[in-house]
Design a protein around this nucleic acid. Structure first.
Lengths: 154, 154
DNA sequence: ATCATATCTATTAAAAATATAGATATGACA
DNA sequence: TGTCATATCTATATTTTTAATAGATATGAT
């Protein structure tokens, strides 16, 4: 149930973009350097996110990538969906792609599917309600907390 | 967030074992045939489950595998934990193995970690409360339902 | 026209998941 | 005690997926 490196890179990049004042566009190269992500791999990730409607881009001087929607409208679930193809713990629960588990003889009576339905619901619940804003705010809060502790100890 | 084939095989095998009357031991070969799982791969899976305390085995004539605990005490979460190593969506949340995300500079302020904590809690909640019994019962209920529909149509 | 940028196509490399083979240990039973 | 049926172990091969790289092209600003 582990997030892929690709998805983590995506979340890091989005985090960075969400923190840009005035949604100023950022160059792939800068983003790659700032978040320590292989540039060519990041290119591909950003392109996916753009095609998924989460990012927008501009070519040429002054160009770069920026969020295509307000950060509080971009859910973590949407990001995972774009990069991993779906969120479901088993293919037969991936409704958006109408996928099926090859080895399964009868989906309707499959015990695995019947229990994983609960997992799927719980996951959707959480992931579709967490947004980039949550991520940014929580990180900031954590930094502040850490900062305060340091300040007091001086 | 997809279950591996290995874990699915494990759940299928456990399902089959849970349905044995009187917890009668089942041969690897029979289990492999019944659930259509590559035998050698299944051997490895069953061994893991035994080492994890979920199954017990006996060598020699009349031997085989059976559940080491009542089916309603074996959680789906425990099974996944044994086969995938953990349940957490990111390594740094895998407390049992005290793992960390290599690329992460500061875990405490990592936004990904902070949002994935919610996911982790939700997953644990569900997976540690679903048992083999749930799986078996739901499958049976689904079969009955299907059966009834057929009966009526005759 | 030039330069800075994203975009596309193709390929390679590395890692993980899945599957197989063969030898060995264990226990039941005659 | 010997034989057979079984799980167990060690090693390796195969396949699939993930991650990373390279080079050519399209686009837009100035």
């Amino acid at each position: 149930m582990m997030l892929s490196k690709k998805t983590k890179y995506a979340l890091k990049a989005l985090h960075y973009l969400a923190e840009q004042p005035g949604d100023q566009p950022v160059l792939i190269a800068d983003l790659a350097r700032a978040e320590n992500i292989p540039k060519k791999f990041l290119e591909f990730i950003l392109l996916s996110l753009r095609k998924g409607g989460i990012l927008q881009s501009r070519v040429g001087k002054g160009g770069g990538y920026s969020l295509a929607q307000p950060a509080n409208r971009i859910t973590i679930g949407a990001v995972i969906n774009i990069l991993e193809g779906n969120i479901a713990p088993v293919q037969c629960l991936d409704t958006t792609n109408q996928a099926h588990c090859e080895e399964c003889l009868d989906e309707k009576t499959c015990g695995i599917r019947l229990v994983m339905t609960d997992v799927n619901i719980a996951l959707s619940q959480v992931l579709n309600n967490l947004t980039l804003t949550d991520m940014v705010e929580r990180a900031e809060a954590a930094r502040n907390k850490q900062q305060n502790i340091v300040d007091f100890s001086i």
